[in-house]
Amino acid sequence: MRLHINNETSKLQAVILGIATSNGPIPTLDEAYDPKSKEYIKAGTYPSEEDMVEEMEAVAKVFEKYDVQVFRPKIIEDYNQIFARDIAFVIEDKFIKSNILPDREKEIDAIKHVIDQIDPVNIIRLPEEAHIEGGDVMPYGDYIFVGTYKGQDYPNFITARTNIQAVNALQDLFPKKKVVSFSLKKSNSIARENALHLDCCFQPVGKDQAIIYKEGFLIEEEYNWLVNFFGKDKIYEITRDEMYHMNSNIFSISEKVVISETNFKRLNAWLRNEGYTVEEVPYAEISKQEGLLRCSTLPLIRE
């Protein structure tokens, strides 16, 4: 398999889509990795496996419609394997394994049948001290945008997934690209105050547009850098509630086709007005785990 990813929006040819089958029991509060999951566990409305399987299969059908080759993880009994983006990501022809929460190492083993098709020279593991997850990493042509948290209290946040060592390691790995990092707001307890990954508050769409949530950024100058980079007229600003429901976490099949959640009424209307084809799917149950469409997909090849 010849990997090729240089951005978020070129025509998709091959992707890993997570899987919700045999997702396991509802986690305890101590087992939850993020504040949003904790909210729904406490409320007794944590998503059912049946609903999540149905939502993911709706995405699989959209990929089938657009002739995208779809790989799925091997099923691990009673284990959450929905968020494929967390465990690895592709830049250019490199498959980079994430240094993730130790409890989730099994998820990499479950996509071994895909990894085995890749030239071993192009399979990379960053140094152990470089913590990183794919939701924080966005290739954009000559740039790589990376969400991070640089505070001394980094170890105190289970929601801080990518550190400055990982940002530096990516720059070393891709010396011809400019790696630009953005400090994100983190909270272990308040979901509306937490940007778990960069794609929870920002994502490019089309050729030159982007969705963004200002308050997800810890440093206003870094938010302003993105607005200036794209241009204010090319930016779609989402609200606090829209960020909570993961409006920036849609997924591009091409520069003109996006998969979006059916409840994102304002966003979907804007996208259509801008000339995009919007393939709507139900994904509100999966979003209760603080992840959505981008989080559950791992693109391998784009044109």
Score class of each variant (00 low, 15 high):
Gly44Met: 05
Asp136His: 07
Phe63Thr: 09
Glu222Ile: 06
Gly134Asn: 03
Ser98Cys: 14
Glu221Val: 03
Lys11Ala: 14
Leu300Lys: 09
Ile253Glu: 08
Phe63Pro: 06
Gly216Asn: 08
Ile301His: 10
Leu12Met: 13
Tyr276Leu: 03
Ser37Asn: 10
Ile219Gly: 01
Lys65Ser: 03
Val258Ser: 04
Gln117Val: 01
Ile87Trp: 09
Leu101Asp: 14
Val137Met: 03
Tyr66Lys: 04
Ser248Asp: 07
Glu221Asn: 10
Tyr46Cys: 07
Ile115Glu: 09
Glu129Phe: 01
Leu293Glu: 07
Asp172Leu: 11
Asn168Asp: 12
Lys256Asn: 14
His131Glu: 11
Lys106Leu: 12
Thr297Pro: 11
Cys200Met: 07
Thr239Phe: 11
Ser296Ala: 07
Thr239Ala: 10
Ala195Ile: 01
Asp199Gln: 04
Glu31Asn: 11
Ile115Asn: 09
Tyr236Phe: 12
Gly135Arg: 11
Ile259Ser: 06
Thr159His: 04
Lys232Asp: 05
Glu280Ser: 08
Lys186Ser: 06
Leu3Asn: 04
Lys177Arg: 15
Ile259Gln: 07
Ile235Trp: 06
Pro120Cys: 07
Ile301Arg: 13
Gln117Lys: 15
Phe229Ala: 06
Glu303Met: 14
Met246Asp: 04
Val90Ile: 00
Ile286Glu: 00
Asp51Trp: 02
His197Gly: 00
Pro282Val: 01
Pro120Lys: 15
Glu54Tyr: 14
Tyr213Cys: 11
Val227Glu: 04
Arg240Val: 09
Thr28Phe: 07
Gly206Cys: 12
Phe251Leu: 15
Ser37Ile: 08
Pro35Ser: 04
Ala130Leu: 12
Asp233Pro: 02
Ile158Tyr: 13
